[in-house]
């Protein structure tokens, strides 16, 4: 028995959030490959019937359909994280802070995420505007993560990685593919590395394996 079905596209950073969270928590799921590109299947009737917003990912749990990525992360954590640390929803301070960074991750989809679609797949949007917005978002994240370095902390919120880290990770990690390098963002670089070091981490195109953690050809 698998936990859910993911309507998936391999180059979508939002779909990747779900694959990553499921990988880390070792949750088994089914996938349906959606021809997001070049077919734009997510905008066809059978997909709009499932998600009227015409976005990916879509997640089904039996009859229940989820269409918002951050809600899917919450579902996985609430149902498949026995430690309860990935989504401390009931904590009076950590819960709201996680919500804040989940919302921030939605902004990243529309800044760095769109910049990526524009650079790579020629998405018909204003690429320069998306890149400017992405730089603003990266700087906001760098400021917060620098505060965390001063505090001796690694993660966005609290003492453990949360769904907020997973939600913010993909489009920040992929931003160099959209022409936005990480040169001026040392705190972001070290946070990305921490996420990539998590047990169960999975990759997506543009985010490679930490080969240093693997068995080398030279032993």
């Amino acid at each position: 028995m698998t936990a859910f079905t993911l309507y998936n596209y391999v180059l979508s950073g939002n779909c990747y959030k779900i694959r990553l969270m499921a990988g880390i928590l070792d949750v088994k799921y089914d996938t349906v490959a959606v021809d997001f590109y070049p077919g734009f299947e997510h905008r066809q009737n059978h997909m709009l019937a499932l998600n009227p917003a015409g976005t990916l990912p879509v997640m089904t749990i039996g009859e229940q359909v989820l269409t918002d990525t951050q809600a899917m992360l919450a579902w996985i954590a609430l149902n498949h994280d026995p430690s309860g640390t990935w989504y401390p929803a009931a904590d009076p301070m950590l819960g709201p802070l996680v919500q804040q960074w989940l919302a921030f991750s939605g902004r990243l989809t529309n800044s760095a995420g769109l910049a990526g679609l524009h650079s790579m797949l020629n998405w018909p949007i204003d690429g320069e505007a998306a890149r400017r917005a992405a730089i603003k978002d990266l700087r906001e994240l760098e400021l917060h993560l620098t505060d965390r370095v001063f505090e001796g902390k690694t993660w966005l919120v609290g003492d453990h990685p949360t769904i907020a880290d997973i939600a913010c990770f993909p489009y920040v990690a992929l931003s160099p593919d959209a022409g936005l390098d990480h040169d001026g963002y040392p705190a972001i670089r070290n946070w990305l590395y921490a996420v990539r070091s998590l047990p169960g981490f999975v990759t997506m195109p543009g985010i490679h394996h930490l080969h240093e953690l693997r068995e080398g050809a030279d032993g």
């Binding site: 077919g39 160099p176 543009g206």
Partner: peptide
């Protein structure tokens, strides 16, 4: 495989190369 599965396999491979090429 479905068309989408085959195309996505190729997208995965090619976009892994993209960050090298750039």
């Amino acid at each position: 495989s479905t068309f989408s599965e085959m195309a996505q396999f190729q997208h995965e491979i090619f976009v892994q190369d993209r960050s090298i090429l750039e």
